[in-house]
């Protein structure tokens, strides 16, 4: 059986002023269709770089990213990214922001009415249909991130890439959005990769958690399967044995075996 997404011996190094710094070294990972995988690690370990490689925004130095056995060498809508700071275009309304993506991806295959329905379906999915005519500056951070998710989903991606999507949000909004993402994932079964630095978030949302070692030349230290049944409810899980065991495993990895050394530079 071939994997849906395969990261095949990926190295990534940046050359800056004659100095080559190795960021990622020998990353090997396979992800199945419909899986929700989190990548966790200390800041500076190259997790965002890894996501950019999968998105195609940066090129690998060695190895390959294979999506359905095809090599990823440029960004495209089948690998939609939800950026940490939402990246909505401020001069467009919520509706227009999604329309920009939808008319580019489905401009030739769907009629205008179909595209309109599709935009509204995705806005409904993130419960933002009421704000369709608002500009990003007029809505809250959590709402912006919802629209960012709707824009990514509207591209009908093969893989949804979330780059610390809730990092800039307060704890309550974050919990709401996590629930929304879980709900969407269960409904659409979208293959999802999420970058995070939040242990609870990783355990709550993921099927598997990929733990990165510290840079330079970071690699995958451990992969933890989270054998929790879905749908998951955060209140019930807070005392669940399996949840706590997974949480402990991740914490041990991050704070015992791969402690973050502040003065690494």
């Amino acid at each position: 059986m071939t994997a849906y997404l395969k990261l095949d011996h990926i190295d990534k190094s940046f050359a800056r002023g004659g100095q080559v710094s190795e960021v990622l070294k020998d990353i090997r990972l396979t992800i199945d269709k419909g899986e929700f995988v989190s990548i966790i690690g200390h800041s500076g370990c190259g997790k965002s770089t890894l996501l950019n490689l999968i998105a195609g925004l940066t090129r690998v130095s060695a190895g390959a990213v294979l999506l359905e056995d095809k090599e990823v060498d440029s960004p495209g809508p089948e690998r939609a990214v939800v950026f940490q700071n939402h990246s909505l275009l401020p001069w467009l309304t919520v509706y227009e922001n999604i329309n920009l993506a939808v008319s580019k991806v489905f401009g030739s295959t769907r009629t205008k009415a179909e595209r309109h329905d599709w935009i509204m379906r995705n806005l409904d999915l993130v419960q933002m249909a009421h704000a369709r005519d608002k500009r990003p500056a007029e809505i809250s951070g959590g709402m912006k991130q919802r629209v960012g998710i709707a824009r990514a989903l509207a591209m009908e991606p093969k893989i949804l890439l979330l780059d610390e999507p809730f990092g800039a949000l307060d704890a309550l909004t974050r919990a709401h959005l996590q629930d929304a993402v879980m709900d969407i994932h269960s409904r659409l079964g979208s293959t999802t990769i999420m970058i995070t630095h939040d242990v609870d978030e990783a355990v709550l949302l993921s099927d598997r958690i990929v733990m990165m070692t510290n840079g330079p030349a970071a690699t995958i230290g451990e992969v933890l399967a989270v054998p929790l049944a879905r749908p998951r409810r955060r209140i019930e899980l807070s005392s669940d044995r399996t949840f706590l065991r997974c949480r402990e495993a991740v914490l041990k990895f991050l704070y015992e075996r791969h402690r973050f050394v502040e003065a690494a530079e």
Partner: peptide
């Protein structure tokens, strides 16, 4: 970020100019 959005959407040069760069 705006450039990344346009790259993921695969906007061509003209679309990028009109829809992202000028605004």
């Amino acid at each position: 970020d705006y450039r990344n959005v346009s790259r993921i959407l695969r906007l061509n040069q003209l679309e990028f100019f009109v829809k992202i760069m000028v605004p």
